[in-house]
Every structure is written in structure tokens, then in C-alpha cells.
């Protein structure tokens, strides 16, 4: 119950933020702008609209996730509301969980609005609606939920600027981990291969949550792999949130 109250308050606070609206409006303008871009292309308009739309949702979603996640604890300290909250009969882990769920709700609304915009645009252009497109948007949301958890973990012990930097670095590393492993297997020595292997399993494998190619080209998506990817993301998010809770429990606020 307490977690739900904190989550709802976090959501209300986030949706009052004007920067969030600015990002959202900009993303929707970019989505609409892709229709102008396709007029100077030859053929392949549907593909370009879907590609650009999914990229827009991904990039602006990343901005929102990083922006919201990294300000999680620092904002509360800055406004001194944290001291009031932790003095109440509420566990610190409940506070972190509530905050995180509030951010996920905010992200859901934002990605939902952008996703509906893209699906609407694809419908206008193609005359049909695509379930695959919805699936790709859902997987982008899942990726952003994971990114928010990363941002929140760093926010639990670091400044917003550093947290944002670390989050973006981990986002990049998460997309490169499979390639690093491949390069190490081809060119590296035994130690490099071992390091790449460790990093591959330790870093979030974000490329597993990328369904853009399959969606745009209409390639069959294996249900089992997809389900496993969802479970993988849930486990990874759980680990990150638990780590953030553990750090926040030990943090000294004076």
C-alpha cells in the first residue's frame, strides 16, 4: 500500500514536469516529420517510417528514462523531502520500489503515447495496423524499464550528472556486449576472451530486446526466444532494483 502511494506520487510529480512534455512533443513532431523525409526517398516508405518511428521512441524514451531515473534520489535530497519521508514509518526499500514503479508508470504513458502515434502513422500510410509494431514498441518499453533501473541504481549513490553518464555508458555497453564477445573470440587472447565472456554475461544484453529488424521486415519472431528475453529483462531489473535498495539502505543521510 505504501509502495503504491509513493509510486502514484512519483508518477504525479513526473507528469507535472514540463521538460517531459517538451521531450514528448519533440518526439511526436519527429515522428510526424518522418513522413516529410520519405517523400524524398524512392520506394520503401513504409520501412523508413517504421524504422524512424521506432528509433524516435527508443531515443526519446532513453532520454526520458535517464532524465527521470537519475534524478530519483538527488531531487528528494535537494528538496529536502527525503528527510520527511525517511522519518516516517516506511522502509527504505519501500521508498525505492515505490519510486521505481512510479517512474515505470510515467515511462509507460510516454512510450504509449509515442507508440500510438507511430501505429496511427503506419495505419495512415499503409492502411493496415500491425501487431508486430506494437510488439516492437513493447520491447522498447521493456528495454527502457531496464535502463530506468540502471539509472536508479546509479542515482542511489551518485550525482545526477554522473548517474546519467554511467547509465548512457552502460546502455552503449549493453548493445555492444555481443559484438565485443565476437571480436574477442576472433582476435583476442585467452585472457581477453575470458574478460569478454564475463562482460557478456554481466552487462545487460540489450540487443536481445531489439525487435526493430524483425518488425520492419516482417520476419517471424520465435515465441520461445521472445518469452525468454522478457524473463531475462525481468530478472535483470529485479537484480538492479535490489542492488539499489541495498545501497540506499546503507546510505547515510545527514
Amino acid at each position: 500500500m505504501r509502495v503504491a502511494v509513493i509510486a502514484l506520487n512519483t508518477f504525479k510529480e513526473a507528469v507535472r514536469d514540463r521538460i517531459l512534455y517538451a521531450i514528448l512533443v519533440f518526439a511526436l513532431v519527429m515522428l510526424a516529420g518522418s513522413t516529410i523525409l520519405v517523400t524524398i526517398s524512392v520506394d520503401g516508405e513504409e520501412k523508413i517510417i517504421k524504422d524512424l518511428g521506432l528509433a524516435c521512441i527508443s531515443i526519446f524514451g532513453l532520454l526520458i528514462a535517464t532524465f527521470l531515473g537519475t534524478g530519483l534520489v538527488s531531487k528528494e535530497i535537494e528538496k529536502r523531502t527525503l528527510y520527511t519521508i525517511i522519518s516516517k514509518p516506511i522502509h527504505r526499500y519501500q521508498f525505492i520500489l515505490g519510486k521505481y514503479l512510479g517512474l515505470v508508470m510515467t515511462l509507460l504513458v510516454n512510450v504509449g503515447v509515442m507508440g500510438l502515434g507511430l501505429i496511427g502513422l503506419a495505419y495512415i500510410w499503409e492502411g493496415t495496423s500491425s501487431v508486430r509494431l506494437l510488439l516492437a514498441v513493447l520491447f522498447i518499453f521493456l528495454e527502457l524499464v531496464l535502463v530506468t533501473a540502471i539509472a536508479m541504481l546509479f542515482s542511489a549513490f551518485s550525482s545526477p550528472a554522473l548517474s546519467a553518464l554511467f547509465t548512457l555508458c552502460l546502455f552503449v555497453a549493453g548493445h555492444l556486449s555481443a559484438d565485443l564477445r565476437l571480436f574477442a573470440a576472433q582476435f583476442g587472447g585467452a585472457a581477453t576472451k575470458l574478460l569478454a565472456e564475463v562482460l557478456f554475461f554481466l552487462l545487460p544484453n540489450l540487443s536481445r530486446l531489439n525487435l526493430k529488424d524483425q518488425t520492419v521486415h516482417g520476419i517471424a519472431i520465435d515465441g520461445g526466444t521472445m518469452a525468454l528475453s522478457v524473463v531475462y529483462a525481468i530478472f535483470y531489473v529485479a537484480a538492479l532494483v535490489l542492488a539499489a535498495m541495498a545501497i540506499f539502505q546503507r546510505r547515510d543521510f545527514k
Partner: peptide, 16 residues
């Protein structure tokens, strides 16, 4: 690899 999964968009923009 450096395009971080956005290679489809990069191909679109290059095609244009």
C-alpha cells in the same frame, strides 16, 4: 556495432 541497433535507420538515411 557502433550504431547500437539503429542500423536500419542508418541504412534508410543513407538510401535517401
Amino acid at each position: 556495432p557502433l550504431l547500437l541497433g539503429f542500423h536500419g535507420v542508418a541504412a534508410d538515411l543513407l538510401w535517401i
